[in-house]
Design a protein around this nucleic acid. Structure first.
Lengths: 231, 231
DNA sequence: AAATCCTTGTTATTTTTTTGTCAATATTGC
DNA sequence: GCAATATTGACAAAAAAATAACAAGGATTT
């Protein structure tokens, strides 16, 4: 069947595959830096510690980037994955919360290289409001609504205390911000059309704890039980 | 067959299950705070947005914590999962790198509540060395070897610049530190018996970017192509 | 105390993900 | 330019994960 237009038969790519893309991107970036021009799935496989089959299958979710008998052109593949991930887009980004985490995010210049341009930071602390981080002004959180209605804001990075997170998230989502990058240990749920990506640092740390326990013995220090339930 | 000792027939729990545990722990913590005494897999299912079947199957990897016709006792289950995750252990932890990320980690008091006691911070900046964060002294990175050999250190949180990460990781691993929590966008690989847990912030952000592109159109700002490959 | 209702733990089924295989085809060496 | 080699993309098989189904048995109601 042919309907006269390019059919959108592309099957939705699974999250498992998508989550591996940034890792491919990193390895390809390293290869580029090492001035390696071509790479086979076999060779990449041994570098990354995953099967060559998986690499080929992952990449083929998005199209045939390789060539039989040759492998993949590193620069080409790097750029293609970049396009898939959208690192060539420019996202207008704000940071909410200028505590240590917010400042760490603001100072992490590499996000900019991936398309995430930080255009403003917001906080409630009068001592911070008016100051700058890397030429980015810290504004009063009160002015959030004004700012967003006067500037395109695609993404908000939320680095605010636990209790305030849902409130702030609701405020930005209501204003049409499309993506939230949340650092609070909670699962944000909002009645808006917004993509939420969580960075649950404590979860990651607890998984480390689990793996340590699995392998080593840490009971030696089990003096006090810890039954409180705050995060 | 019975060999006189408790047999270790427990099948290794898959990482997929382990990674969900902290999330269960969080929800149970919330229930505790709300003074809810019991919960069925059904009810928890609708709160968490996963199937009741998965919850029951996950929990049964570690033992039968529930009761037919009743459900799960919230406090009991919370404590059991805490034990599995090892939140009742005490891990002697150091932070390496007192930049914004290191300071953010040092100020995040909740890690302490999960058993991760930060006993020292290390940096190379002479302006920081000697100062304190929450009564934790920042020491010269030069003194790392001395410190570790004189104190039990279970875990090192690595919040140092990209290039220095492998070097520092090697140093602590060599000294017998058991776990590394790495914030650099690289896959650490070390010839030591050490558990490494990575927090790849840029990866997470790029997945957010992918999801945004999948759903919305961000090509409007595609003015300059970005082909550099630094992280 | 009996009957009904709930809800688990377990097993079976389905779905998803990963791995293996191989024909097709470009590259490389002679 | 031809044969040998390398390597992909597609498909098949296997493994793993998620979901469904249900018997067993405690909780609740009458």
């Amino acid at each position: 069947m042919y309907w006269g237009v390019k059919m959108n038969l592309k099957k939705k790519v699974s999250l498992a595959v998508v989550k591996r893309l940034p890792r491919y991107y990193r390895y390809l970036s390293d290869l580029l830096k090492m001035d390696i021009k071509r790479i086979s799935s076999q060779e990449l496989s041994s570098r990354m510690g995953i099967t060559a089959s998986q690499i080929r299958q992952d990449l083929n979710c998005f199209g045939g980037f390789g060539q039989q008998g040759y492998g993949y052109n590193v620069e080409y593949l790097f750029n293609e994955i970049g396009n898939i991930l959208g690192t060539n887009n420019k996202y207008q980004t704000i940071i909410i919360g200028a505590g240590n985490m917010g400042q760490a995010l603001a100072n992490y210049t590499n996000f900019e290289k991936r398309g995430f341009k930080i255009i403003s930071i917001f906080d409630v602390d009068p001592k911070l409001v008016g100051t700058e981080i890397r030429d980015i002004e810290i504004r009063d959180l009160e002015t959030l609504e004004d700012f967003i209605s006067q500037n395109y804001v695609d993404i908000a990075m939320l680095a605010v205390p636990y209790e305030q997170t849902p409130v702030v998230a609701e405020r930005v989502a209501k204003l049409g911000v499309r993506g939230l990058w949340n650092f609070s240990p909670m699962d944000l749920k909002l009645p808006y059309d917004v993509i939420i990506e969580n960075v649950h640092l404590s979860d990651s740390l607890m998984v480390l704890g689990y793996k340590l326990n699995e392998k080593f013995d840490f009971t030696r220090n089990d003096s006090e039980k810890n039954n409180d339930c705050d995060f």
